[in-house]
Write a protein that binds this DNA or RNA. Structure first.
Lengths: 342, 342
DNA sequence: CTGTTAGCGCCTTCAC
DNA sequence: GTGAAGGCGCTAACAG
């Protein structure tokens, strides 16, 4: 079993009575090595199953073939989907994905970045935490000449390429869908004011109302802090307490929508006949709840794939133009929670 | 900005008029270097923020400080929880986690293993696919002298250390709980006969019935193939068609339980008054469904932590004994689906 | 066509 | 207390 030392080029060279470099070149079928030498070496290598020492190769080429990937939270349907896409795509080019999480804390994110840097990944994919408003720790990568791609949650001012979803469009579509299905008093339980994605969704919501001659009412817009189920419950209660309560709610994310469900059920308010709901992200739970939840899909897998592609193109230094920003279209998945049964 | 070449030991040595080896030793505060030299070097290094080239260090030590982690499916609540624990724990010892997935296919698993091997991880954590009954691809790691730890879904015959959950106990507790809550005709929608975890849960179920003088009825036990929501629906229908249908169902996993929910709701059968349900894994969905689902928690995060600990102990070659098998206890999380409202 | 040489950056005997 | 030298495994420029 173990401890048979791995075969090296040196061993092959000695055994075959050739030089190390010839052996090296033969294995790569270098054009000016004799065909028969190539065969000789390749056969020997195959027979003794020679495997090049990757650590040495990487050292020589000063790279690792590893790509760092930092997300706010790993145990999260959307992000795990992105990771899944990133892994599958990276594999195709022989890259590995090294995952880390920030738990939505800036300090953790900075540590994760430094660790990634220390372990010498060739490049980085990052989706920033809710607490990240400065990106010096991210720029350190760029300063080292390592490419970085932001995805989903991005820091606009960094001027680092990004792969995002069209949150504005998503918000617009969700709201438009509600309007077209006969709802007119549409509230929005929004995200944090300081998070870009949330702002875009809010803008989309407002624009859709405007485009359909509906008023934008400030009392219909409530901003979350923790983006939790509890907030959904509480804020829905608050909305219902209004003199003129809404007949539909567009929620910043499915989890919040779930809280809204709870409040409505507790009060025996029928969904979608009395109040309609649309979520965002299209988590697994959207299909599970009763009634099932209409939600805006963000194409997480695709986002992972595209982000990796962009990064690998930069790494491999292909000459053709690489777009600095990819904006994926959202897809509204219409289910029961937003379509009246009549 | 970029392209300022990184500082090396050589640079420091030249600058300070000392030799490379002295610089190297000084940075590690080697005992027989003069205190003042140490200060000199350390100060210089700090001032010019010298960072050792990890790739070179790893090459020298022929290791990577990377640990491979292969799961059947990344986008899966339980596994992402395990990964999360593994990452957090590995970080503490300066190890990185390199994630890959098999999609529950043997071929993909083999490829993932080879890729991991090629990229030279120092060790491997693996949870096998449903199609894995031979483990030569896993043994290749061991042959290379790289430690491997199995977790959750393991191949018993490999005699490779494992971290698992006590599935037998989980099945036993779930069934016992149902019995104690007044249910006596308890069915089990089981997993595949060829998957160890599923067999253990089934054994636990049977044992609990035996211990409480209840008969084990073959018609109450149905084996899944794909472990899907659809199967839950179909099999529940089948169970209800029995002359003497069950009054409770213990499901191999929460997803299957969800299918059971659907069938019961479709037929307007009240949960848990007419039929009780217990799931397994305690996914997020268990708290979300109505009524909420009683489920057996597998402590995924802890499993990730323990598996990494075990592996790192092997890597760091600590001399004290390392248990070859850690069996975590399950925890029954009692919710509404299994407790009569009376 | 093939071999020699010179590193990549770091660590570690072995001398002095 | 410090330095010189060799080598980890592989690649590539430079000679023949």
């Amino acid at each position: 079993m173990s401890e048979r030392r791995k075969l090296t080029l040196k061993d092959i060279a000695k055994e075959l009575g050739i030089s190390i470099s010839t052996a090296s070149r033969a294995l790569k079928a270098h054009p000016d090595i004799a065909e028969e030498t190539i065969q000789l070496v390749k056969d020997y290598a195959a027979k003794h199953n020679y495997v090049p020492n990757i650590i040495a190769v990487n050292f020589r080429k000063s790279r690792t073939k590893n790509i760092g990937l930092i997300v706010p939270e790993l145990v999260h349907h959307f992000f795990s989907t992105v990771i899944s896409g990133a892994i599958d795509e990276a594999k195709k080019s022989g890259y590995n994905i090294l995952v880390s999480q920030s738990n939505d804390h800036l300090t953790d994110e900075i540590i994760a970045c430094r660790t990634m840097m220390a372990s010498s990944v060739d490049g980085l994919l990052i989706s920033i935490s809710n607490e990240t408003f400065e990106g010096d720790h991210i720029l350190e990568f760029v300063d080292e000449g390592k490419p970085v791609i932001q995805f989903d949650k991005v820091l606009e001012k960094l001027s680092i390429p990004q792969v995002i979803v069209d949150d504005f469009e998503g918000g617009y579509q969700a709201t438009k869908h509600l309007i077209e299905n006969g709802y007119s008093r549409i509230a929005h339980i929004a995200g944090r004011k300081d998070v870009l994605n949330a702002c875009e969704r809010l803008k989309g919501y407002k624009q859709a109302l405007n485009d359909h001659q509906l008023p934008v009412l400030e009392e219909y817009i409530i901003h979350c802090e923790s983006i939790s189920e509890e907030e959904g419950e509480i804020f829905m209660d608050r909305l219902l307490a209004l003199p003129n309560p809404p007949d539909a709610v567009f929620c910043i994310t499915d989890l919040v929508a779930l809280g809204v469900f709870k409040t409505l059920k507790k009060r025996a308010i029928r969904i979608p006949d009395q109040v309609a709901i649309v979520g965002f992200s299209n988590w697994k739970l959207a299909e599970i709840v009763t009634p099932s939840l209409t939600s805006v899909d963000q194409h997480g897998y695709k986002m992972g794939v595209e982000a990796i592609r962009m990064l690998i193109q930069k790494l491999d230094n292909k000459e053709y133009e690489i777009p600095e920003k990819i904006e994926l279209k959202t897809a509204l998945v219409i289910r029961e929670s937003s379509v009246k049964s009549t």
